[in-house]
Simulated assay, not measured.
Amino acid sequence: MSYGVSAALQAAVFSALSADDTVTALVGSAVFDAEPSGALPDTYVSLGAEAVRDRSDGSGSGAVHDFTVSVVTELSGFQGAKAVAAAVSDVLIDADLVLARGVLVSLRFLRAKAARIENGTTRRIDLIFRARVDDA
Rank of each mutant, 00 (worst) to 15 (best):
L99Y: 01
Q10E: 12
L75T: 10
K82L: 12
D96L: 13
V23W: 11
Q79E: 14
L9V: 08
G58M: 01
Q10C: 07
I125T: 06
I128C: 04
A8Y: 12
R111V: 14
G60Y: 10
A63H: 02
S29Q: 13
R116W: 11
I117W: 00
V72H: 07
A114V: 06
V103A: 12
R116Q: 11
D66V: 15
A7D: 11
G48A: 03
V88T: 00
R108G: 10
F67D: 04
S89N: 12
G62L: 12
A131H: 07
A30F: 08
R124K: 10
G4F: 14
D20C: 01
A112L: 09
A49Y: 04
D134H: 00
R124H: 02
A19T: 13
G120R: 02
A39S: 15
S6M: 14
A87W: 06
E74S: 14
L99H: 05
K82Y: 13
G58K: 05
A11N: 05
A63C: 01
A112C: 09
Y44C: 10
E74T: 13
V71M: 05
D135T: 02
A115Q: 14
S89R: 14
G120Q: 05
Q79Y: 12
I93W: 07
V69E: 04
L127M: 14
V88K: 08
A87H: 02
K82S: 10
S70A: 15
S18Q: 13
D90G: 02
V52W: 00
D96S: 14
A136L: 15
